[in-house]
Design a protein around this nucleic acid. Structure first.
Lengths: 214, 214
DNA sequence: CATCTCCTGGCAGGACCTTGCCACCCGGTG
DNA sequence: CACCGGGTGGCAAGGTCCTGCCAGGAGATG
């Protein structure tokens, strides 16, 4: 049987509107705020400014590996962690997701003519389903500390290396493009491949894309 | 200003329910049915069984290159074309999308505990936005005939080649795995890279993943 | 059968990638 | 200054990949 949901779902256009509409939900959270972010670094930082949460509220953050390669964002992630949030780094994507007290779910929809849209959902069965997805992603993700340890200096240069690699450039060209010697460029590629757990460049390409690094 | 949409959007759980709920929309289409499919081969074939459409109804199909590498699906695509549908093969993803008479849009949402969810949208401005996305994808896609011509025998072996490539195997091993000589295996890889528009294997990996071939 | 076409697989040469080795530079330390 | 540690870049040997060339085999056609 099909159940029409004509209430309990609001579609919000644009990040600013989302923030205006949902700020009270965040500040009013009583037991838990869980967020998963794959892509929209700016949005994450706008909606969820780094500040300590009220006692008793468990704050969990899933920041995708792709975001963590952005130096500014990984700083933000560490700041969140130092303020009491539990931060983990997943390697699979799960879409922009927010869960509050198991009562409200916020999901990013597609973008409508450049403006991202978000659904604010209070339908219990939907919220429950989204919670399940979040839990499974949470279990499979790497705690921030462990992630940080394994990918320190790599983060600095990785984006540009990935960019030229994805552009199909040969090492000679690529090295000149990113301003490294061929030897050092190849070192970076090797480190990148190790970080991605790839044994060939093809595999590295697949993984990089999988992680949203490109 | 936030506009709450509490009507005009229905969320449907599962493909069967979607079919039950939307069948009348397809059969009742008066001027146009446009579909874009990236991934859910089974779903596409369920929702849109191959049959001739009423005269005067323009039927357009965007079947992603990933789907076309599935032999069964590409047969289905050709059957659709022979029944009057305009079929094109895009190389970029745009999500599972259906548009009917410019009045209704159906989009696949995430999956809820394994059950895929779909939004049936009748909000004019949203439908219009989705239509724009579809048109742009349509213009950039390759007509079925042209696609078929350039990728005949490739489809037969591509999946297994992609698999071993993604597994990180070297050519020697990979060739043995798929039961080809190294020379022929390399030929297949070269063809694959050409089809993907890739100049390096890294780039091919990225594209392959982008297209959901892996 | 003769012939043609298409695909396969071996071979070889060259392009490209990978890695160890080592000299060099630079900032920190005694 | 002498020394050390860490990063850089040149070089070279070896591994991997790319591709033109050609011989051989399978199937279609006359």
């Amino acid at each position: 049987m099909v159940v029409m949901r004509t209430e309990g779902i609001a579609v919000v256009h644009g990040m600013r509107e989302l923030w205006e509409r949902t700020a009270h939900l965040f500040t009013g959270a009583r037991s838990e705020v869980s967020c998963a972010a794959d892509q929209y670094a700016n949005w994450v930082r706008l909606v969820s400014p780094a500040r300590r949460s009220p006692a008793g509220v468990r704050v969990r953050k899933l920041y995708h590996a792709g975001l963590m390669l952005d130096p500014g964002f990984s700083d933000y992630a560490r700041r969140m962690a130092s303020l009491g949030a539990q931060v983990r780094v997943p390697t699979r994507e799960m879409g922009e997701t927010i869960l509050i007290d198991g009562r409200v779910a916020i999901l990013a929809g597609g973008s409508d003519a450049g403006t991202p849209t978000f659904s604010v959902i209070t339908v219990p069965e939907v919220v429950h389903g989204v919670s399940g997805l979040f839990e499974s992603a949470w279990v499979g993700a790497t705690p921030l500390a462990a992630w940080d340890a394994t990918s320190a200096e790599l983060r600095a240069i990785a984006p540009r290396v990935l960019e030229v690699l994805a552009a199909g450039a040969k090492d000679e060209t690529a090295a000149r493009t990113v301003g490294l010697s061929v030897r050092t460029y190849r070192r970076r590629v090797a480190e990148l491949m190790a970080a991605l757990g790839a044994e060939t460049r093809f595999q590295a390409g697949v993984r990089a894309r999988e992680l949203g690094l490109i």
